[in-house]
């Protein structure tokens, strides 16, 4: 598997660390318990396009990857600033 780093271009999977769904980009307010439950635990697990977060360890860049869970196609990779 190969993923695009916005800095380094397409790189081998072995250079990345996986975090999880891009839901982590949106922190709920401190006083929103059900918001936090969703944020931490509830995932849509789509068959199709999904967004998740990967760390490109060599260059220290977090990347939001859009990929397809059915076709395994990796569609894009952008820095987190552009992903929210």
């Amino acid at each position: 598997m190969r993923l695009p780093c916005p800095c380094c271009g397409w790189r081998d999977l072995r250079e990345f660390t996986y975090k999880g769904a891009a839901d982590a980009l949106h922190r709920p307010a401190l006083d929103d318990p059900s918001g936090w439950d969703d944020h931490l635990h509830n995932r849509t697990n789509p068959a199709g396009e999904t967004r998740d977060l990967w760390y490109h360890d060599p260059c220290g860049t977090w990347v939001c990857i859009t990929r397809d869970t059915v076709s395994h196609a990796v569609i894009s990779g952008v820095p987190l600033e552009g992903a929210r």
């Binding site: 975090k19 982590a24 980009l25 977060l53 760390y55 860049t61 977090w62 820095p79 987190l80 929210r84």
Partner: peptide, 14 residues
């Protein structure tokens, strides 16, 4: 920890 700190900075306080 450094992955985590990089994440917090790049995700929430860029």
């Amino acid at each position: 920890v450094i992955r985590h700190l990089d994440f917090v900075q790049q995700a929430y306080c860029a």
